[in-house]
Amino acid sequence: MAGDPWLWLGLFILFAYGLEAVTGFGSTVVALSLGALLLPIGQLLPVLVPLNLLMSGYLAWRYRHLADGPLLLGGILPAMLAGTLLGYALLPWLEGAALKQGFGVLILWFALRELWRQRHERPRGHSPAWMTRLQIGAGGVCHGLFASGGPLLVYALAGTPLCKARLRATLACVWLSLNGLLSLAFLVDGRLAPALPHLALYLPLLVLGVAAGEWLHHRVAERHFRTLTYLLLCLCGLLLAWHA
């Protein structure tokens, strides 16, 4: 792709946050999977994580009364926090191409699983508690590596009795906590300061993307929008996994 990759990233951010406003889908997963085709993941994370922190903060505060406190504090956050710290510690030891390939496989798995689920619409069986904790911890590792632990965490929580609204509010609190921790880590390790000019430029795009997504929310069939997005993620996953 020709041109400045950071300009392309701005378009990806606009699309990703508009998508999340339409469907509730994770903006970081989309922006990172597209951005990783042009830029190193290590340069993208200090930009995308603080942007997501702002959106998560807004959602967590607005819908705080819907969050499941016992599940959040007693089940999700401890395992996700431990996994996130482990994933962040592993980052310096992973070679860039291997990191992109691993992320590509994760994105491809998630997109194919969602396409299969949409087609068959089969309810998922109940998982044992130890398996759920293991899946949540794995989601934390992915979050520490890619700031994209959502796919595994949502999969782990699929068998819980949380309604859609309570699940979204609880997840917003998770991302607020973990992305706040990652943003602090980026500040301490010196990666946040160089990203601040990009953050300032992309902040209006975040607001514009959310506004556009809310406008489209009542005008676009969510199922079709999601299908196109998952197909796009399949393509990104293949490109990242086999051409990193």
Rank of each mutant, 00 (worst) to 15 (best):
G57Q: 01
A60E: 05
W61G: 09
W61D: 02
R62Y: 11
Y63L: 14
Y63Q: 14
H65W: 00
A67H: 03
D68Q: 10
G69C: 04
P70T: 08
L71K: 01
G74W: 00
G75Y: 00
I76Y: 01
A79V: 12
L81T: 15
A82F: 12
A82R: 12
G83I: 02
T84K: 04
L86V: 09
L86E: 04
L90S: 01
A97W: 13
A97P: 09
A98H: 11
K100P: 00
K100L: 03
G104F: 01
L106P: 11
I107D: 03
I107V: 14
L108M: 09
L108S: 12
L108G: 13
F110W: 08
L112I: 02
R113G: 15
E114R: 14
L115M: 08
W116E: 05
W116Y: 10
W116M: 03
Q118R: 13
R119M: 08
R119I: 01
H120M: 05
R122G: 07
P123G: 02
P123I: 08
R124D: 08
R124Y: 01
R124T: 12
R124S: 10
H126Q: 13
H126F: 00
R133C: 00
R133F: 10
G137E: 01
G139M: 02
G139E: 06
V141L: 10
F146Y: 15
F146D: 04
L152S: 10
L152K: 05
V154M: 13
Y155P: 03
G159D: 15
T160V: 06
L162W: 04
C163E: 15
A165S: 12
R166N: 11
A169W: 02
A169S: 04
T170W: 02
L171N: 11
L171I: 14
V174T: 02
V174G: 01
L181H: 08
L181E: 07
L182R: 11
L182G: 05
A185E: 07
A185V: 10
V188I: 15
